[in-house]
Nucleic acid binder design. Structure first.
Length: 804
RNA sequence: GCCGAAGUGGCGGAAUGGUAUACGCGGUAGUCUCAAAAACUACUAGUCGCAAGGCUGUGUGGGUUCGACUCCCACCUUCGGCACCA
């Protein structure tokens, strides 16, 4: 027999599978479908170990389901637009498109060496017009529905990338791509009104689909729905002028002893007519200098008195207006009523500046007696006609009362902001709008899509969008009046591309529609979506938003696109830290393939630990798995066609079939591989192995090691391909061992073992009397008073002599 | 601070409330060899003991139970996430 040398067989089978189109999925076929989705890769040019890990897990599940008779779709595509392409191109002088497309060619080759069962006919590349024209189409539809609009706000701006960075892509005050500190800059840009879906995006309990709890709770927190009231506080000096505040605790209004506005508040200029002018102006300047990050980090309260007063609409007292940067411009109305007795921050502020503290909720608790703020709910005090009401009731009644005075209303606010989608860069989907001198902003008609990205532009950053340099492209006739107009030169955020790609996988080349609705209703929602937890507040939220939008357009019938989402783990470098080029601890999959072959790497990644594991790459571990595969290969020597199976042989075989089946189903690949190793250890001890056993073994191993199993399968003279065989079935009648080991305990402590025939496993009296006869047990029980006998079928006998 | 997940050998990790440490790595000894590597075999939680055997052990302290890694309460630590959100 030949030695197991992966490099001699893997390439051969990869080519054969490709030639035979073995993993082609007929979407029209009837029968149960299984759509297995893995988050698509960015076309960076190199497949790293993280890709291997994630895609291998998807591939194992897909292969398993296919053998179980499901019509499985395992597609793959490329996230191809975005800054890295543009930056790499600027650095190396290659056009982003050429850079991207050659990367994709290379990565496809790397994906092939993985031996994964992708159906490459169902694939998308986001930088191709046949894909991004539908980004434009979606954008126009959103515009039609009032969900895409042009707005002006302060946004995080990356000076290095020369573009707006979405809030959820700002990490610790730095740009997620280049790690330059972002600044706040007022820019006009396109927004998608994701806030219109805030309530729809909130997860209910229990959830409609099986998505991770951590994701659901993070998304809910990010959406940040809170109910409260808008209340107008009349300015003391000017009649009919108000400061409007938002509060979640209108019940505490009688305790509002001052009011705070943020330093950027529009009313502030008006208020600066007092003697405090200088001090306030200085504070505002100081606050504007602080970066968002500093403001958040420094929790020491700061602020100044404006010199002006408002009237508390219910106590009718004049209360001072302060400016403080702990009140944020982007939330609520940017102004608060401060209730120091019942809010920690207001309390800290009041203490620091010696402001009045009036308790209005009776907590009956010690903190309050000790003069600390009580932030919970309770019964009202010091609140005139509302005294003795509970917080909940009072909140309702006080808001209603304010409403009748024309000074308040019920209000719900959200933390979620609209999605700023325009980028002042080249390598992205052109936004399909033109600016006409006569007609203003005009959408490009649907029939004129796609608005193709011009190839020839100057994409080096100069403070204006690169597309503005493509003059021929920019100057167009207005679709409405035919007069001269200019194209929008901003492009779309790359997150737009990957918010809906899994719909397009099902119908990637459709020229007439975004997708065929019948195909979608047949194949979606998809069964499982494997991806990273880092996309919780980005991609995983946007894609749900798009699905709900498609639903409202009448394109799809469901409101969640994936029945299940699973977060994958992370493979660290050998040193236990995150792999990075600068640290030089990157484990290159291509090199590992050369050393051990794809099968060993796949199986090692599966065996490493639970699916969500964060663990370092262990070179010895791969070696161990390679050794396992080698032993499987060498077992051929022992195979005999005539070998009869004992009861124990059948038991081991079916026990393993059951375990591997259950484990792959629940994505516990590590214990599935361990079960195969155990069975191999058992088979290796036998003098001969039957063909039946060996075949079953190969079938069970085939999702993990597709090349080796295919090769041995062929050598055994079996029909091609092993990957088209039926998955083995565990039979109940074989799932009983011949003998059962029972633990015998006295007072819960293990004292002996009893081996019984399987036949008497359910006969309690027989088992107990056999246990009592054991020499060791009878000796230990000699002078003891046996109070209870407990028998757990097939597991344990416990003799209790002491009852507490 | 808040939210989420998790703490088990030298290491990665197994265990429907029922014999803790499966499987793999690493280690020790042996077989084979002139030797080494590879392969194979045995052992490998700590501790007392020549042994038989005992005791202690799943982050800490309590609790429930005949029996707890598993369930409950309190605490500690680590990892991941977050928004001074009124």
């Amino acid at each position: 027999m030949k030695k197991y040398i992966p490099n001699h067989i893997e390439n051969k089978w990869q080519q054969r599978w490709g030639k035979d189109n073995l993993y082609f999925t007929d979407l029209q076929k009837t029968g149960q479908k299984f759509y297995c989705l893995v988050e698509l890769a960015y076309s960076s040019g190199d497949l790293h170990m993280g890709h291997w890990f994630t895609f291998t897990m998807g591939d194992i599940l897909a292969r398993f389901k296919r053998m179980q008779g499901f019509n499985v779709l395992l597609p793959n595509g490329f996230d191809a637009f975005g800054l890295p392409a543009e930056n790499a191109a600027i650095k190396r002088g290659i056009h982003p498109q050429d850079w991207t497309m050659s990367n994709i060619t290379r990565m496809k080759q790397q994906f092939t060496t993985m031996g994964a069962s992708f159906d490459w006919e169902k694939s998308t590349i986001s930088c191709l017009p046949e894909y991004y024209r539908w980004n434009q189409w979606i954008f126009l539809k959103m515009y039609e529905k009032g969900l895409a609009y042009r707005g002006k706000t302060y946004s995080s701006w990356c000076p290095s990338c020369q573009t707006v960075v979405a809030e959820e892509n700002v990490e610790a005050g730095k740009c997620w791509r280049c790690e330059t500190e972002v600044i706040q800059k007022e820019v006009e840009q396109w927004f998608l009104k994701i806030t219109a879906y805030a309530d729809d995006l909130l997860w209910s309990e229990p959830p409609e689909v099986a998505w991770p709890k951590s994701l659901r709770e993070s998304q809910n927190a990010w959406i940040g729905k809170s109910k409260g009231a808008l209340i107008k506080f009349p300015l003391a000096a000017q009649k009919n002028q108000f400061i409007e505040i938002f509060t979640t605790r209108p019940d505490t209004i009688y305790g509002a002893t001052f009011l705070i506005i943020n330093p950027e508040h529009p009313l502030l200029k008006q208020l600066l007519a007092s003697k405090h002018h200088q001090e306030v102006a200085e504070y505002v300047i100081q606050a504007s200098k602080k970066s968002e990050q500093e403001r958040k980090e420094n929790k020491e309260k700061s602020g100044v008195f404006t010199g002006s007063f408002v009237t508390n609409p219910l106590t009718h007292q004049q209360i001072p207006i302060w400016v403080a940067d702990y009140v944020l411009p982007g939330y609520g109305t940017g102004a608060i009523m401060a209730v120091p007795a019942h809010d920690q921050r207001d309390f800290d502020f009041a203490k620091k500046f010696g402001l009045e503290i009036v308790p209005v909720i009776d907590s009956g608790q010690a903190e309050q007696l000790a003069g600390l703020p009580f932030t919970g709910e309770g019964k009202l005090i010091n609140s005139q006609q509302f005294d003795d009401l509970t917080s909940k009731k009072a909140a309702q009644e006080i808001t209603d009362h304010l409403h009748s005075l024309g000074l308040g209303e019920h209000q719900t606010t959200y933390h979620l902001h609209d999605w700023s989608i325009s980028r002042q860069r080249y390598w992205g989907t052109p936004i399909p709008f033109v600016y006409c001198d006569k007609c203003g902003l005009v959408p490009v008609p649907e029939k004129d899509l796609p608005v193709e990205l011009p190839y020839k532009v100057d994409y080096t950053p100069q403070g204006k969008p690169p597309l503005a340099t493509a003059e021929q492209w920019v100057n167009v006739d207005c679709p409405q009046c035919g007069g001269s107009a200019k194209r929008e030169t901003e492009t779309m955020d790359g997150f737009m591309d990957n918010s809906w790609y899994f719909f397009r996988y099902l119908d990637p080349h459709n020229e007439h529609k975004i997708f065929d609705q019948e195909l979608i209703s047949k194949w979606m929602p998809l069964e499982i979506y494997i991806g990273g937890a880092e996309h919780t507040l980005g991609h995983a939220l946007y894609s749900r938003f798009f699905t709900k939008f498609f639903h409202d357009l009448g394109l799809v019938k469901f409101t969640e696109y994936a029945e299940k989402r699973l977060h994958h783990g992370l493979i660290l470098g050998v040193d236990g830290t995150k792999m990075s080029k600068s640290k030089g601890n990157v484990v290159n999959p291509d090199e590992q393939v050369k050393l051990y072959g794809a099968d060993a790497i796949r199986t090692y990644l599966a065996f490493l630990g639970p699916f969500d594991i964060v663990a370092p790459w262990d070179p010895n571990g791969v070696g161990g798995v390679f050794h396992f595969l080698e032993r499987v290969w060498n077992l051929q020597d022992k195979v005999s066609k005539n070998e009869k199976l004992s009861k124990e042989d059948y038991y081991q075989m079916h026990k393993t079939i059951k375990k591997v089946t259950d484990d792959i189903e629940t994505m516990k690949n590590n214990t599935a591989v361990a079960a195969l190793m155990e069975w191999l250890n058992f088979l290796s001890k036998k003098t001969a192995v039957s063909l039946v056993e060996y075949e079953k073994f190969l079938l069970l191993l085939s999702p993990f090691a597709p090349h080796l199993t295919e090769e041995v399968w062929q050598q055994l003279g079996q029909a091609y391909s092993i990957h088209q065989q039926d998955w083995p079935q565990a039979e109940e009648k074989y799932l009983q061992a011949a003998e059962v080991k029972i633990a015998v305990m006295i007072d819960g402590k293990l004292r002996a073992q009893l081996v019984i025939d399987y036949d008497i496993v359910n006969k309690e009296t027989d088992v107990v009397s056999q246990a009592l006869k054991l020499e060791k047990i009878s000796k230990l029980l000699l002078n003891k008073d046996l109070k209870r006998k407990i028998y757990v079928s097939g597991k344990v006998v416990n003799f209790v002599t002491q009852l507490t």
